[in-house]
Design a binder for these strands. Structure first.
Length: 201
DNA sequence: CGGCTGATTCGCT
DNA sequence: GCGAATCAGCCGC
């Protein structure tokens, strides 16, 4: 039997100091959005960790602050959404405490609720709805205007998922961060082994 | 201020 | 398998 709203993740889940731990724990959790009455839910299948000022792949590397990255310095539990390649809205979860600019990029979901709405939002057909960071944001209707909002209530929140059993977690390098020199080699991408919703192949 | 690059995706040469 | 779409941030002039 499912519980109701009480299974929304508490903020102390996000505010732990080890972003790798939070990233792995987010696998299997359920990302939810509710815009204009359209409820959508997706199980988190794939994530990447970004470790604030010590990570050359992170926008907040060396403590950089701009209007965009300012969100990552907030306390854990809010969303950081930014525009990539001028087109795609990428959704991250801010972790750690205030002024520790860590974040977890949500890279892929397994749709659970609202596939019809997602399909309508994408316009283009015969594609998977949520197997990449840009496309999942589009399916869930998340945009840069939602950056900075907290994830404890509608329109965007994250719920407990089923307990993960008999599923291996693959740890490997992050995607598209070749510019990060030695940090590009860190095994900070996590996904469920053999899950068909993982991005790329 | 111009030019380049990117945590990507889609469509077609 | 390559390039366009198209914008925020950074660096050099």
């Amino acid at each position: 039997m499912k519980k109701d709203s009480s299974n929304i993740l508490p903020y102390d889940f996000y505010q732990r100091s080890n972003v790798l731990e939070v990233a792995k724990d987010l696998l299997g959790k359920v990302l939810c959005t509710a815009f204009e009455g359209d409820l959508c839910k997706g199980r988190i299948i794939e994530v990447e960790a970004y470790n604030g000022k010590n990570d050359k792949a992170c926008h907040a590397n060396k403590g950089r602050r701009t209007a965009r990255t300012e969100i990552m310095y907030k306390e854990g539990g809010c969303g950081y959404v930014y525009l990539c390649y001028g087109i795609h809205h990428l959704f991250n979860v801010v972790t750690n405490t205030k002024n520790n600019a860590d974040a977890v990029l949500i890279r892929a979901l397994q749709p659970i609720v609202g596939m019809d709405v997602m399909t309508k939002r994408l316009k283009s057909n015969n594609k998977k709805l949520t197997n990449g960071p840009g496309i999942l944001s589009k399916s869930m209707a998340i945009t840069t205007q939602h950056t900075g909002i907290f994830l404890g209530q509608p329109p965007i929140w994250i719920e407990e998922g089923d307990v993960i059993v008999n599923t291996d977690i693959v740890e490997t390098t992050r995607i598209g961060v070749g510019y990060a020199e030695e940090d590009a080699l860190l095994p900070w991408r996590f996904y469920m082994k053999d899950n068909p919703w993982v991005s790329k192949k």
